[in-house]
């Protein structure tokens, strides 16, 4: 067996061992839908003509070699690209059927409905409690002290961090370990009660144990949320996602969607030869 075949074999084992039926999820409606989405920075096209249905209450993984525009795609789903000077978005992103790039839409409301977690844990330099309460405070939720406390607790429970921090909510967030910090960032995003959670390579800076904790957490969360995760770790995509989108830069270095479908199909019988090459590690 060649090294590549071994990699593929290993991924197939991962998929077959999954308890939930990967790839055989009932067809659900789309929480987010992109139509011919293109993004350019200062006139240089980064991604072009991306059309994907991100299904509700499922985990969709976006994989692809570095520089293929995975993060760009992710950032255009909650209008984070607005913050980058020179970024221009064309095409449509429909969130519950509403075009989030339409003129009247306020990106601030979009972002409070679509949470985001970043590559490196980036808690604010304040207490654990204040980190989680941050989104509730800036979004002007009118909550009593007790309600606030309750919402913070719920978010921490959902992020599987409550038991580790319940006795020291006033401790500085930087006193947590890297993995704990990343779960705190997830709790921080969940506290605002978004519908969708975007994760940009959330485990890339973490150790294997913390990584597996976060993966289990994501699988548990998908019953309540729509999750979209960018990862360059194929095994991670195989372990957690229901759907997988494969992106690849073309000869002009413009990122394109080359294949999209249930994770099982993508990993076991890819239609595009480039997908197979990428999954088995021949393209990086």
């Amino acid at each position: 067996m060649t090294a590549e075949e071994e990699v593929l074999e290993r991924i197939k084992v991962i998929i077959s061992e999954r308890k939930d039926e990967v790839g055989e999820v009932v067809e659900k409606d789309a929480a987010i839908l992109t139509e011919d989405l293109s993004v350019s920075y200062h006139g240089r096209v980064a991604i072009e003509d991306i059309s994907i249905k991100f299904r509700r209450n499922a985990i969709t993984a976006i994989i692809g070699p570095s520089g293929c525009g995975k993060s760009t795609l992710l950032r255009s789903l909650n209008r984070m690209n607005d913050l980058i000077p020179g970024a221009l978005v064309s095409g449509k992103v429909l969130f519950n059927g509403i075009d989030i790039y339409s003129r009247d839409v306020d990106p601030v409301y979009i972002r409070s409905r679509i949470g985001m977690v970043f590559q490196r844990p980036n808690p604010f330099p304040m207490s654990i409690f204040d980190n989680v309460a941050f989104g509730l405070r800036v979004n002007g939720f009118k909550l009593t002290k007790d309600e606030l406390r309750k919402r913070v607790q719920e978010a921490l429970v959902k992020a599987a961090l409550w038991d580790e921090v319940k006795d020291r909510l006033d401790a500085h967030a930087y006193s947590l370990s890297g993995g704990q910090q990343q779960r705190l960032c997830i709790a921080r995003a969940l506290a605002v009660e978004p519908e969708v959670l975007l994760l940009d390579e959330p485990t890339v800076s973490l150790d294997p144990i913390s990584t597996s904790k976060i993966e289990r957490l994501l699988v548990a969360l998908k019953h309540d949320y729509t999750i979209i995760i960018v990862t360059h770790n194929m095994q991670q995509a195989a372990r957690v996602s229901d759907y997988t989108a494969v992106m690849m830069p073309d000869e002009n270095l413009i990122g394109r969607l080359i294949e999209f479908g249930p994770t099982k199909e993508i990993f076991t019988s890819p239609k595009d030869s480039r997908t197979e090459a990428y999954i088995s590690g021949r393209v990086s």
Partner: peptide, 15 residues
């Protein structure tokens, strides 16, 4: 979360 249907009005700029 999923219970309430998101309306267009929820996302537009408020005066």
């Amino acid at each position: 979360m999923g219970d309430q249907v998101l309306r267009y009005e929820d996302l537009v700029k408020r005066r």
